[in-house]
Design a protein around this nucleic acid. Structure first.
Ligand SMILES: [Zn+2]
Ligand SMILES: [Zn+2]
Ligand SMILES: [Zn+2]
Ligand SMILES: [Zn+2]
Lengths: 138, 138
DNA sequence: CGCCTTATCGACAATGATTATCAATTGCAG
DNA sequence: CTGCAATTGATAATCATTGTCGATAAGGCG
């Protein structure tokens, strides 16, 4: 509707720290990111981490997924823009981005077929990555 | 692994009430089902509703989905057994069951391709049903 | 039909993730 | 440099869900 929606947030020390930390390519909860930052010496507050991650998720700079437990997991989004989905390790959080050919069109078609509009979709694959499988199989 | 996993739960008044209430074909949270039951005159406890819904979900008698907010929604499952997915109205909760042809195979293939094992998948479509769209468009 | 064992209840406390408060800071426009 | 609104962070408040535990009652048995 309105493209002038983004009142660019201020570049604070905290925001910079979060952006840096997010280089790691693993899905982690807000609390987990906070712990990591503190363990690296940061004094950033938990609430700030929550706020930043939410704002970044809204603006599409990070991916957010809701785990089965209900907690929200975040990680830096590789493809700056395009819509995509993930295959994530349930154990260590490592994830790869996948594409699901034709699914966008399929979703829209299903919606139309049932008279539903404004369709959103969620596709998440989870599994156990090779490393974690090996460690567990020991 | 073990087929003798189900120590058939006792048929209590509370369980009956829940099973009855679930006839409605809408996704509702545990708390919402509890409220409805109480409003119908039941004296059932909240914890009991949570326990029953979870147990029913595990045994596959009800569908459970995790909403974006993180809360878990339940409803009676129409297809007694088979694996399937839903298109749910974000406003009123009304849902239809859909099937995503070949997705099971696709998911397994993606997993194999990346070395991930024990793949699970989530597909949920949400939209706005015709009634709710009309009401909103008013 | 009564009895007894034990699953199930339910009121209430406890947890854990997320959000709201609000005074103290601090980007940053002017 | 100034001034002020945006941002921070310690902490309290929410909210969904789970744990506790004495009371209750399903249901197998005699
Ligand atoms: Zn892993
Ligand atoms: Zn998609
Ligand atoms: Zn279903
Ligand atoms: Zn609707």
């Amino acid at each position: 509707m309105n493209a002038a929606d983004a009142p660019r947030p201020r570049m604070t020390r905290q925001r910079r720290e979060i952006l840096d930390a997010l280089d790691l390519s693993e899905f982690r909860s807000a609390q987990a990111w906070h712990e990591r930052l503190r363990s690296e010496g940061s004094t950033i507050g938990l609430a700030t981490v929550y706020r930043a991650l939410q704002s970044l998720a809204e603006s599409g700079e990070v991916d957010a997924v809701v785990a089965e437990s209900g907690e929200t997991l975040y990680r830096r989004c590789e493809a700056g823009e395009e819509h995509h989905h993930h295959l994530r390790c349930r154990v260590c959080g490592k994830a790869v981005e996948i594409d699901v050919p034709d699914f966008e069109a399929f979703a829209a078609a299903i919606g139309r077929e049932h008279g539903y509009g404004d369709i959103l979709h969620t596709i998440e694959l989870t599994g156990v990555c090779p490393e974690c499988a090996a460690r567990a199989g020991a």
